[in-house]
Design a protein around this nucleic acid. Structure first.
Lengths: 243, 243
DNA sequence: GCTATTGGATAGATCCACTATCCATAAATG
DNA sequence: CATTTATGGATAGTGGATCTATCCAATAGC
């Protein structure tokens, strides 16, 4: 399709499309002549992805650019879904070149590798992101905060991911790239799900912390946490009942 | 102290201080004359808080403004720490007036109230924030996503808050407002801790989801989640060692 | 009285994410 | 072939966010 049609169907102004192309978020159309190019559905889907990430997840364009760049690298033949790879690019871009951060990132990477559930896939930026936050934690809060303290967080994160996979009607599961070109839809869904449920969980966490604070402060009973495994369809019994 | 001194000590340009005052993030100094005012340590501390929230947590000024407004309301006599109240203001400001969001917010509020660990304190915006994200979930992902599905998330959030309270060397615990005026330090710490560990946990969650996807996709064993309670002081042993 | 500083107001700077306009060129159409 | 229409490329403009700089009349302190 022509630019005009793409613009109309995606409901994105032409100038914006050109802007995205300039910025590398969108590939240029196949040029037949110097002033003639045609665009495919992948352009439409990409525009929808960009819109979703911008409007729904409110990601800055620079982050969207990293995500789309990751998608464009094309990981065919890789067992890992492309959406997954794109998620690798979601974290903030290693703010500050402090050598301290790099040192910490190494430590965090080792910590992650030692977890029972990580794979040896090492292309992720998670460690950098965590290290960046840890630098701030040490600077502003606890000068000697040990990386090992993250063990409980990691365990709970794994538990959370288990719950997410059980709960999402097929959505948390990142789709493995299949043959064919129209994989953008599940990709968009996976990325969006990741971002949206991150927001929801963060709110619940703040809520929980607030309530715990109130209870501790007022001497009200603080109920212990216990986790029920979601059974196939619905919520289940206590975990203690297991082995 | 005078504006000049405040500016120098906080290392914030005068014009910026005036800008913050105009924007309501900072109270004006006590005016002795039309061109003479003096500022106290609370101004210095407020400036440090603003800097931390902007630079460390990268919060937009509008959010910082809500936080400081909450702090300024003064909840003396309230058993709840002021930092806690300020945390109420952290969520995004109810984007979009969609009636759908308001309806969902009511449902979410009921859901939250039914949790075993919430108090009947109802001044929080968490429900609005969650509802906002849920609206997007329903629009873009699962049209009928039920609020009840958040139960697992809520349980895990409570578990996480338990871990955070155990782990933080006195930091996650929001300080109850004591008498005296220099409570800004623990307040800042509590707010910062909330924001920073939110970043860290979000990264771990993305990491966990990625690894789970990879494992599922490649048929590698997916270890079940199990949670070890953090022992009083230090990091816990491997979980398998438990029963 | 004189000077430096203050608060208040206003304007400028910078970045981000677009958006609009202009133009030489070329395709499409009659 | 002449005309209309659309294209890609370049450039500039817009509006919001977050400061930052400058100017000015009033005045505090000497």
């Amino acid at each position: 399709m022509r630019l005009a049609e793409l613009s109309e169907r995606a409901r994105v102004p032409r100038s914006t499309i050109k802007f995205y192309i300039r910025e590398g978020l969108l590939s240029a159309g196949a040029a037949h002549a110097r002033n003639q190019a045609s665009y495919g559905t992948q352009h439409l889907e990409r525009l929808e992805l960009i819109r979703a990430l911008r409007e729904v997840a409110a990601l800055p364009l620079a982050v969207v650019a990293r995500v789309t760049a990751e998608l464009d690298r094309g990981w065919q033949g890789d067992p890992i879904g492309e959406a997954l790879l794109a998620m690798y690019a979601l974290p903030a871009p290693a703010t500050g070149d402090a050598p301290e951060r790099r040192r910490l990132a190494k430590e965090v990477r080792a910590f992650l590798r030692a977890l029972p559930w990580t794979t040896d896939d090492d292309r992720h930026y998670f460690a950098d992101e965590i290290a960046g936050a840890l630098v701030q934690v040490r600077r502003y809060l606890y000068p000697d905060y040990p990386v090992a303290n993250l063990a409980s967080y990691a365990e709970i994160a794994w538990l959370l991911s288990e719950a997410e996979f059980e709960l999402a009607p097929g959505g948390a599961r990142v789709p493995v790239r299949a043959r064919g070109d129209d994989l953008a839809e599940p990709t968009r869904r996976a990325i969006l799900a990741s971002v949206l449920f991150e927001q929801i969980f963060a709110a619940l966490r703040r809520c929980a912390n607030s309530m715990r604070s109130i209870r501790v402060a007022t001497g009200v009973r603080v109920p212990p946490a216990s986790v029920t495994r979601p059974a196939r369809k619905r919520v289940a019994r206590r975990k203690r009942a297991k082995p």
